[in-house]
């Protein structure tokens, strides 16, 4: 992967629900290998943007182009969306990360078992293999999901609020993995709320409030003026909104 190639390209993308845009006219590139934060108030379209990239939500307008296929994306949605009461062991949950490789019926070879153990070790869950996922704490569950991401071995990794309601120790451990992915030249896009963390660790930032507010070097994007602008933009919901006539690409 050369650092100049593009991992994800947005051509005047509008994403939304019904006909109402949640992400409005986003245009630009995410270079391969970048470590990018997506920041903005609640309802700004951050999660919607990730759904658009994964392909579970089709753009209302414009186009999202991926280098490689959608199966090259590993996606961690917000924590609440998993049925934790389901009788499944930590090991089996993590092993699902091998799906793209083993598919519907492929077996799990000895080499894969080693990889699963390595992934569990990397997130500090050795000894948890046989535990049902219903017994995990929020932080342990997030560690297990990161282990699954490790196994997916994808060139593009999307994280939706991965550290919300997670304690400092776990956050630090998981951030190490994020750095490791960055060092391995993977593209990482994370939706985050902790601006200090973004400034410390993420070189690139997209500030969004339905419309993109600013996109580029984190230091410049997170200026007080931009943040204020973002806060003002998002609340408007107009029940009589007109049809948008801005041209798509």
């Amino acid at each position: 992967m050369s650092s100049t190639s593009t991992a994800i390209r947005f051509d005047e993308v509008t994403l939304g629900y019904g006909r109402r845009p949640a992400v409005h006219h986003l245009d630009g590139d995410i270079p391969a290998g970048s470590l990018m934060a997506v920041v903005g108030p609640n309802g700004a379209g951050k999660s919607t943007l990730l759904k658009g990239i994964v392909g579970t939500l089709k753009p209302l307008d414009g186009q999202i182009r991926l280098k490689g296929s959608a199966s090259g994306i590993a996606y961690l949605p917000q924590a609440a969306e998993i049925d934790r009461s389901f009788p499944l062991s930590v090991y089996d949950l993590v092993a699902m990360g091998l799906w793209t490789q083993s598919g519907l019926f492929g077996g799990i070879a000895r080499r894969d078992r080693t990889r699963i153990e390595e992934a569990l070790a990397a997130v500090g869950l050795i000894g948890f293999e046989r535990r049902p996922i219903s017994t995990l704490s929020g932080g342990q569950m997030q560690r297990a999901l990161f282990a699954r991401l490790l196994l997916q071995d994808a060139p593009v990794i999307l994280l939706d609020e991965p550290f919300t309601a997670i304690d400092a120790k776990t956050t630090a451990d998981l951030l190490d993995l994020v750095r490791r992915w960055h060092d391995e030249a993977r593209t990482v896009v994370a939706v985050l709320h902790d601006l200090d963390m973004v400034r410390r660790i993420f070189p690139q930032t997209l500030l969004i409030a339905r419309e993109p507010v600013a996109w580029g070097e984190t230091g410049e994007v997170l200026s007080p003026e931009n943040l204020l602008k973002a806060r003002r933009m998002v609340e408007a919901y107009d029940p009589h909104a007109d049809v948008c006539h801005r041209s798509a690409a």
């Binding site: 994964v54 579970t56 959608a70 199966s71 994306i73 590993a74 996606y75 949605p77 969306e81 998993i82 049925d83 389901f86 499944l88 089996d92 949950l93 699902m96 799906w99 793209t100 598919g103 519907l104 019926f105 996922i133 699954r148 997916q152």
Partner: peptide, 23 residues
């Protein structure tokens, strides 16, 4: 036997299943 994996995964984590497969 054939559908076991997607059946389980669709219960636990349907979003993950959708992100890796159309099954």
């Amino acid at each position: 036997a054939v559908l076991y994996r997607p059946l389980v995964l669709e219960c636990v984590d349907p979003i993950f299943l959708r992100s890796v497969s159309r099954a």
